[in-house]
Design a protein around this nucleic acid. Structure first.
Lengths: 246, 246
DNA sequence: CGTTTAATTGAGGAAAGTCAAGTGAAGTGG
DNA sequence: CCACTTCACTTGACTTTCCTCAATTAAACG
């Protein structure tokens, strides 16, 4: 499930696609951005924290005293809605950073979708490191560019009006995520449950369920169980995912 | 329409809310992040470019050789849809940066929504500056955090299912934008046309038009003309904008 | 002043939402 | 190890809302 270097951590790791270096070789490949030295420096000021599945990591509006860097597991950054639903702003994976803030307060709440291990990095120490500025700051900039693009892709996904293409795009996204992390491409693993998918796609639970059913009955995908999806008809799948007919 | 320091430019200017400095004083206020020195350094490597309303600044997939910093005007970053519609990923204003890329190619197309004046900064020169790292890199990080939050707010807005609250949130957003830039709060100015609003909200032109009509007929807002909106019933307006009943 | 582009409005249909009932799986305690 | 409880998900009937398409009206431009 997780690459080797994340299992035996040598300090925080930031994975991202370089925004400036032209494509090949290793097109679309995510690199570990930090040098051994930088990772060691960060390791000195950070601690390792663990969360059980479902644990709240912090709430919206809490004092933002630390940023986090995921070693293993999946985290959801979300906001609560007035009608007690929730909107998931992003799903974060190993190599991602979260805990950004506005005026010293977290803008989202965060919870562990799976068991999570992460580095916790105090912001004050982090700012000091950034000011003494090795190449660390450029790496952080690169990572932020990537997160920005992700947020924009998410917004794009949300403009899709029909539920089936939305779900297809979501599955596509997760397949890419898994292949770029070097895992089996034959099956997509979904670590979150249906209600999380609904909150991320801006749909109701029912709509997500029906969208799965539609794709299954059209023999475009099959589900071994609720968390394992296989793509049966790649061509139909991509047609549904990148155009908007479902 | 634009603060004075943007009219007589002393070099690129980045405006953002500090993510770490706690709220008061000047809560929610956007600062000019760059020092005189930094602005001068950036000015040396950048040129000033002008665009007429409607001009395409660059296309999706173009080689990303420069970033831009807006002096005056509004820019839309968008993607074309297969069915010849478009999705607007973000609306950019004076003090914003755009032209971020992935593997050396622009991920969005950009066009001028109003007449635009901007600094054009070659990425190679910019990278050199960042590597020689004054505090410039930290400022860029701060700005990117802000853009990330904006993208997440946009995604949040897009999860709203009814058109009226969506439009209300959009108007609210623009009111904030104008007050933080120190302009008259009595009326909201919309520099873009209805189809741009539709493309940003993920609605059809008709739906946007009807949402305006609904708010007008409920006497929540009034329109002096298509670009000037006034909020008549602040309480009703906020109820519609932050909860989801419209 | 006429032509083009932008916006409004209306009728009808498609799709997701809501509400509620029912099924399946997973975990608990006996 | 099995009955029981719980939670996650599915499915169905009905309502709401937006989209589609088309016809008009209003504004912008030469």
């Amino acid at each position: 499930m997780t690459p080797v270097d994340l299992k035996r951590p040598g300090g925080p790791a930031i994975h991202a696609v370089d925004p400036w270096l032209p494509g090949n070789p290793a097109k679309g490949r995510r690199h570990q951005l930090l040098s051994e030295n930088e990772r060691a420096q960060l390791a000195k000021i950070s601690s390792i924290v663990r969360f059980k599945k479902g644990d709240r990591i912090y709430s919206e509006g809490d004092a933002a005293d630390a940023a986090f860097n995921i070693i293993s597991g999946v985290v959801a950054a979300y906001r609560n809605l007035p009608d007690d639903g929730e909107h998931i702003a992003s799903l974060l994976h190993p190599g991602d950073i979260f805990g950004l803030s506005e005026e010293g307060r977290y803008t989202n709440a965060c919870r562990a979708v799976t068991p999570v291990v992460a580095y916790k990095i105090p912001v004050t120490a982090m700012r000091r490191l950034l000011a003494n500025s090795t190449d660390l700051d450029v790496d952080v900039i690169i990572k932020l560019c990537e997160e920005l693009r992700r947020a924009q892709r998410h917004a794009f996904l949300l403009t899709q009006k029909r539920s089936v293409p939305k779900l297809a795009m979501f599955l596509d996204l997760h397949e890419h995520l898994q292949t770029t992390q070097g895992e089996s491409a034959s099956e997509i693993y979904l670590p979150m449950d249906r209600s999380d998918i609904a909150a991320y796609l801006g749909l109701t639970l029912s709509a997500v369920s029906r969208a799965f059913r539609t794709l299954i009955s059209q023999k475009v995908i099959s589900c071994r169980d609720r968390r394992h999806v296989k793509i049966l008809d790649r061509k139909a799948f991509e047609k549904i995912a990148d155009s908007q007919d479902g």
